[in-house]
Computed example of a mutant assay.
Amino acid sequence: MTRINGRALGLWSLRIDAIYCVLLGGAVAVASAQIARTIAQPAWLLALAGSVVVVWAGLVMVMVAKLRLRIALRLVMGVNIVAALLVAACSMTAGSMLAAFIVVAIAIDILLFAVSQALALRTLPAPEAVAG
């Protein structure tokens, strides 16, 4: 059985998460008026949320480049958990069962990124002890 490479998994998870955020955030921002008719949220709020998600994607890539992987994974995982809960809460305002299902599916996608980041953290080698 092959052991999971935590570093590779963590980097892939963060990069794919950023790509997902650009695509999803951009789509929500562009289609905010149409989405607002399906879930009872103001179009301006959806456009703002989509734009923030796109900016977040850029911040994730900066974290990948500038921070220790363990710190970046923890930060992004925490934000993903909060985002999944917020998106899931939006499903309660959906006008139809299908719309609610789609919103919950997106929340599950976001939560799965958090799971992959947790798995990467768990499989990273222990940090080196600092000699003092």
Rank of each mutant, 00 (worst) to 15 (best):
T123A: 05
A107S: 07
A120E: 05
V55W: 03
V104N: 08
L73F: 09
G95I: 04
W56R: 10
A94M: 05
F113D: 07
S116D: 02
V62E: 15
S116E: 02
V104C: 05
A84S: 11
A105S: 10
V82K: 01
I110A: 02
L119Q: 08
G50T: 14
A126S: 14
G50L: 07
I108Q: 06
F113Y: 05
A84H: 01
V64Q: 10
V54I: 15
Q117K: 07
A84K: 00
I110L: 07
M63T: 14
S91W: 05
I108S: 01
A49I: 03
A89S: 03
A49G: 11
W56T: 14
L111F: 13
A65F: 11
V82R: 03
L121A: 03
L121N: 04
V87R: 03
V87W: 01
T123P: 01
V130H: 00
S96E: 10
A57T: 11
A88Y: 03
S96G: 06
V52C: 13
G78V: 04
A105E: 13
M77S: 09
A84L: 01
L73S: 06
G58K: 09
V87S: 07
L119M: 06
V53Y: 02
V79Y: 11
A72E: 06
M92I: 14
A83R: 00
L121K: 06
M63N: 09
S91E: 14
L73E: 08
S91C: 08
S116V: 00
V103M: 03
G78N: 09
M77I: 10
V53H: 05
A100V: 06
V79I: 15
L69A: 01
V130F: 06
C90N: 05
L59A: 14
I102G: 14
G50E: 01
A89H: 05
V87T: 12
T123M: 03
A118S: 10
E128V: 15
A88E: 09
A83I: 10
L86C: 07
A131H: 08
L59I: 13
L75K: 10
I71P: 03
A57S: 08
M77T: 13
I71Q: 15
L98H: 12
A118W: 03
I108A: 07
M92P: 09
V82N: 04
S116Q: 02
G58C: 12
G50M: 08
I110D: 04
I110S: 01
W56M: 14
A118H: 04
A72G: 06
A89N: 00
T123W: 03
A89E: 00
F101A: 15
A129L: 15
I102H: 12
I108E: 06
M63A: 11
R68K: 13
L112W: 02
R74G: 14
R68H: 14
V82F: 09
A94L: 00
I108Y: 07
A129Q: 06
I106E: 12
L98S: 09
I106W: 13
T123I: 06
V64F: 11
A47G: 14
